[in-house]
Computed example of a mutant assay.
Amino acid sequence: MPIVRITAKGQVVIPAEFRRKHGLQTPGRALITERDGQLVITPVASDPVTGSRGILRSKTPLREVQKRHREEEIGLEDR
């Protein structure tokens, strides 16, 4: 596990092997978050539309969800 320096400006150089492995491109952008006391670096897509594809995907097909909602609405109307 490589050890990296942190500059006076707070900059860190991510080793090339990690940039290639995780798709971090230069120049580029990354999101830094904290999870369980660890810093997590996540690549940010240059095109936000492309990068956000699939984030709302559900395991249940949309038709099934719509069918349940319709049944629920009909049940509420019958009351």
Results as ranks from 00 to 15, higher is better:
residue 53 R to N: 11
residue 75 G to Q: 12
residue 79 R to P: 01
residue 11 Q to N: 10
residue 14 I to Q: 00
residue 65 V to E: 05
residue 26 T to A: 14
residue 20 R to V: 09
residue 3 I to W: 02
residue 43 P to D: 08
residue 5 R to G: 09
residue 5 R to W: 04
residue 78 D to G: 03
residue 36 D to R: 07
residue 18 F to T: 08
residue 66 Q to T: 12
residue 55 I to K: 07
residue 11 Q to C: 12
residue 6 I to Q: 08
residue 21 K to I: 05
residue 16 A to F: 02
residue 60 T to Q: 07
residue 14 I to G: 02
residue 65 V to N: 02
residue 25 Q to R: 12
residue 70 R to E: 15
residue 9 K to Q: 08
residue 18 F to N: 15
residue 76 L to G: 03
residue 10 G to H: 03
residue 31 L to P: 05
residue 46 S to C: 07
residue 35 R to N: 14
residue 33 T to E: 10
residue 40 V to H: 09
residue 14 I to P: 03
residue 12 V to H: 03
residue 24 L to P: 05
residue 45 A to I: 00
residue 43 P to A: 07
residue 44 V to G: 06
residue 21 K to P: 04
residue 59 K to L: 11
residue 26 T to W: 07
residue 55 I to G: 05
residue 54 G to T: 04
residue 34 E to C: 12
residue 44 V to D: 07
residue 48 P to H: 00
residue 14 I to N: 06
residue 76 L to K: 15
residue 63 R to Q: 15
residue 56 L to S: 07
residue 54 G to L: 03
residue 59 K to W: 00
residue 56 L to Q: 07
residue 41 I to F: 05
residue 62 L to N: 03
residue 33 T to V: 13
residue 14 I to L: 14
residue 16 A to W: 04
residue 36 D to P: 04
residue 56 L to R: 13
residue 25 Q to K: 14
residue 4 V to M: 11
residue 73 E to P: 00
residue 69 H to K: 15
residue 18 F to S: 11
residue 51 G to T: 01
residue 75 G to A: 10
residue 58 S to T: 09
residue 6 I to V: 15
residue 4 V to S: 09
residue 71 E to G: 04
residue 38 Q to S: 12
residue 41 I to E: 01
residue 55 I to H: 08
residue 65 V to Y: 01
residue 47 D to S: 06
residue 9 K to N: 10
residue 58 S to D: 13
residue 73 E to T: 06
residue 18 F to E: 10
residue 55 I to S: 05
residue 8 A to W: 01
residue 4 V to R: 11
residue 78 D to L: 15
residue 21 K to Q: 13
residue 52 S to Q: 05
residue 44 V to M: 11
residue 22 H to E: 07
residue 64 E to H: 04
residue 55 I to C: 01
residue 13 V to K: 06
residue 20 R to F: 05
residue 59 K to Y: 05
residue 71 E to L: 08
residue 15 P to S: 04
residue 5 R to E: 14
residue 40 V to P: 06
residue 12 V to I: 15
residue 63 R to P: 03
residue 68 R to H: 10
